[in-house]
Amino acid sequence: MDTITKFKQFLTEPRKAKEYTDIGFKQFMLLLIIAVLCMLPFTLLLSLLDVEDLGHIFEGLIKKNKWLFAVGGIILAPLMEEPIFRLHLNLKKSSIWWGLVLSLIIAFSDWFIGLAFMIYLVYLLIMISKKFTPNLKMVVYSSSAFFALIHLSNFTNFEFGNHFFLIPFLVGSQFIGGLILSYIRLNHGIKWCILFHGAFNAVVIIPEVLFMEV
């Protein structure tokens, strides 16, 4: 079965592989291309909507030290975000506990989303403790939504009351990226999830670092 068909099936009925396998180079690159192509329409829409007034935290970081920003985005962000948002997808207590502890990090950037995410993880712990298996589709889509929403904190002037209608455009690509990462996590393991996240960020960040005028 080809990668695209498997991913489409995953979107309608997510499943965890019985045994993780290494992801092949062609499959890795195909998923990376899909992730980039899914990002482009949102980038175009945001440029048409003219959201420059919202500001972006990355602009200041690039101006301060663009190479430190690159290292943070390509290496540190995947190492931090994947255990927080994707480790628990295997629905093991230990993984959920790790996600719960690490989620304290995101609470510092956005306390509201961070608190909601922690409540969600506690709910999963309670369900599993009572021998109920949470619906995996709900878990995959919920974690992807939280992953997307936490990126709202990147916009320095975002105010929910004034800009709530922009949320699907601001973080839509991260939501789709979260679904792709969830597919990789449940079929190939957290290691490949982190590597893929880093590769995607590299595709986005390196051109900005090289060609953005500081």
Results as ranks from 00 to 15, higher is better:
residue 129 S to P: 01
residue 100 L to M: 04
residue 75 I to C: 10
residue 74 I to P: 03
residue 152 L to G: 11
residue 64 K to P: 00
residue 121 L to F: 05
residue 95 S to D: 15
residue 154 N to K: 04
residue 70 A to K: 02
residue 113 I to A: 07
residue 67 W to Q: 08
residue 147 F to C: 05
residue 131 K to Q: 13
residue 151 H to V: 08
residue 120 Y to T: 07
residue 139 V to Y: 05
residue 74 I to C: 11
residue 145 A to N: 04
residue 149 L to N: 08
residue 144 S to L: 09
residue 138 M to V: 11
residue 156 T to K: 15
residue 117 F to S: 05
residue 151 H to E: 07
residue 134 P to L: 11
residue 106 I to C: 06
residue 136 L to F: 00
residue 76 L to Q: 02
residue 151 H to M: 09
residue 90 N to E: 10
residue 72 G to R: 01
residue 142 S to G: 12
residue 91 L to C: 03
residue 111 W to P: 02
residue 78 P to L: 09
residue 82 E to I: 02
residue 154 N to E: 15
residue 73 G to C: 13
residue 148 A to E: 07
residue 139 V to K: 00
residue 131 K to V: 04
residue 146 F to N: 09
residue 128 I to R: 11
residue 104 L to I: 10
residue 83 P to Q: 06
residue 82 E to N: 08
residue 141 Y to L: 09
residue 80 M to Q: 07
residue 150 I to Y: 07
residue 72 G to K: 03
residue 153 S to R: 15
residue 84 I to R: 00
residue 81 E to P: 03
residue 113 I to H: 04
residue 117 F to N: 05
residue 115 L to A: 14
residue 115 L to N: 06
residue 138 M to R: 13
residue 79 L to R: 03
residue 114 G to A: 10
residue 156 T to H: 13
residue 119 I to P: 01
residue 92 K to Y: 01
residue 156 T to W: 09
residue 125 L to H: 06
residue 114 G to W: 06
residue 124 L to P: 01
residue 121 L to S: 01
residue 89 L to C: 02
residue 79 L to Y: 06
residue 112 F to S: 09
residue 107 A to H: 01
residue 117 F to Y: 15
residue 130 K to G: 05
residue 137 K to N: 08
residue 144 S to C: 10
residue 133 T to Y: 08
residue 140 V to W: 01
residue 154 N to L: 10
residue 144 S to H: 07
residue 84 I to Y: 02
residue 95 S to N: 09
residue 121 L to M: 11
residue 126 I to D: 13
residue 120 Y to H: 12
residue 73 G to N: 15
residue 120 Y to A: 02
residue 77 A to D: 01
residue 67 W to R: 03
residue 69 F to W: 09
residue 153 S to F: 09
residue 143 S to Y: 04
residue 144 S to D: 14
residue 147 F to A: 11
residue 70 A to F: 14
residue 93 K to I: 15
residue 76 L to D: 00
residue 151 H to I: 04
residue 119 I to N: 04
residue 127 M to Q: 15
residue 144 S to K: 05
residue 102 L to G: 06
residue 75 I to T: 05
residue 89 L to V: 03
residue 69 F to M: 05
residue 155 F to T: 03
residue 128 I to S: 08
residue 83 P to Y: 03
residue 137 K to Y: 10
residue 75 I to V: 15
residue 71 V to A: 14
residue 71 V to C: 13
residue 108 F to A: 10
residue 67 W to C: 05
residue 145 A to H: 06
residue 126 I to M: 12
residue 127 M to N: 11
residue 99 G to C: 08
residue 125 L to I: 09
residue 120 Y to E: 03
residue 146 F to V: 06
residue 155 F to M: 07
residue 96 I to D: 03
residue 99 G to Y: 01
residue 106 I to H: 13
residue 147 F to D: 08
residue 152 L to H: 09
residue 85 F to V: 00
residue 117 F to C: 00
residue 96 I to V: 13
residue 100 L to C: 03
residue 149 L to F: 15
residue 97 W to F: 13
residue 148 A to C: 10
residue 87 L to K: 09
residue 69 F to K: 00
residue 135 N to D: 15
residue 130 K to L: 14
residue 109 S to A: 12
residue 137 K to G: 14
residue 145 A to C: 14
residue 96 I to T: 07
residue 104 L to N: 07
residue 129 S to H: 11
residue 96 I to E: 02
residue 141 Y to R: 04
residue 105 I to H: 04
residue 83 P to T: 04
residue 81 E to D: 14
residue 110 D to Q: 06
residue 107 A to N: 08
residue 125 L to G: 10
